[in-house]
Write a protein that binds this DNA or RNA. Sequence first.
DNA 1: GTGGTCTAGACCACC
DNA 2: GTGGTCTAGACCACG
Lengths: 125, 125, 125, 125
Amino acid sequence: MILLDMKDRRPIYEQLIEKLADLMLCGALREDEKLPSVRNLAADLSINPNTIQRAYVELERRGYIYSIQGKGSFVANIESVRTDRKEEIQNSLRTLVLQAKDVEMKKEEFVALSEKFFEEDMGDD
Amino acid sequence: MILLDMKDRRPIYEQLIEKLADLMLCGALREDEKLPSVRNLAADLSINPNTIQRAYVELERRGYIYSIQGKGSFVANIESVRTDRKEEIQNSLRTLVLQAKDVEMKKEEFVALSEKFFEEDMGDD
Amino acid sequence: MILLDMKDRRPIYEQLIEKLADLMLCGALREDEKLPSVRNLAADLSINPNTIQRAYVELERRGYIYSIQGKGSFVANIESVRTDRKEEIQNSLRTLVLQAKDVEMKKEEFVALSEKFFEEDMGDD
Amino acid sequence: MILLDMKDRRPIYEQLIEKLADLMLCGALREDEKLPSVRNLAADLSINPNTIQRAYVELERRGYIYSIQGKGSFVANIESVRTDRKEEIQNSLRTLVLQAKDVEMKKEEFVALSEKFFEEDMGDD
DNA sequence: GTGGTCTAGACCACC
DNA sequence: GTGGTCTAGACCACG
């Protein structure tokens, strides 16, 4: 269900956050559905429970999940996840455009690339 | 000439690399022009010479500059810098498009945003 | 009669204690009136009977209710509940005033806020 | 400089956050001043460095401090700390007023208590 | 069994 | 030396 990339320079807990958010966005985890327990997921991924816990804490802080002592962790409002992610994308796009202008890439070229990328992975959708 | 942001979470040597590459791209540093000496730049920016050295080593590894023993470091082929940066931008754009599709952002919306960002900072150009 | 908030971070038994005390204060539970049985209340709220039991034990410890073997639990002296609660409020207010002084909030501002809060929810009363 | 209460039910890292914020508010820690290093403070308080780290991370998340790899942690904008705290106090006060109304405490009594508390610790100021 | 906290000790990147 | 991440293993409160 979740694949970690140990070669990735980003910390594991950050990868976990992203992967879990992705699962919510793609519908694999639905609202109020129970997430795997800290210990189970740790065993599945063969990493330390503390690392899972850290990811869950951050997900809760962001309002993506809610945890209940003695019961487990559950998916909160998915729409807020989508909104957050959309905002992040806008920010990334803005800085990317700034960089594109630095290398004198023209608007037309940038847009053409965007459209190409949008279409080339259509099979995944 | 160079302003570092100590509060930026990225390592200083990385900021340095980016800033120096930017200076090459914008024409402030021309081909075969001499870069400031490690010690001078360290003094100017009041940071550790080791940090400058690390940035220069990385810039040389990427082929952006070349060093001559006893003479200093010099700007190499700027066009290659531009090409590299362009490739990085393409990769970033590809992953960004993938994320956009995850949050169900439509191609039209993405392109419209891109065009907006291209135009809104025209004054800075 | 009682609504629990499973997403509330406080333990359920603590919420139960507060809610039951509130019911006594507002007159919904009168002196010597019988409380619902542990099993009934557990069924009504669909939570574990142990949790109800824990709340009842604590309520008895505080002298808010008394239990008779084989008959059930009953409301004790409500006035003592009110007195207790009042004392807690005084303590909270004292520490809140200390904090207010730490952020250089003036007495006048604090009192004005208090008066505002007293009046703004009058409709609920 | 910092005293922890091991009997306090709140987690140590939370107490630490509060104490450090207090030190900023009372002027013992000034803007851009260096905080004790994670390891030093851990040794001073005889607790685990991880616990200090956790407090620092949360303080940084709230924008109270900023950390620089290899250099240390530093006090950020104190005014924002004060503003945050003030908001928390208002929220506490609002719920406290609601509770006061539940026990039929009159506005006049509440205000009188507030004023008394404001004056009785004047010696500490 | 579940989440939440803490300790002890390790390794890394950065300066 | 600094902060940042991770592991291993423990204990507690809750249901």
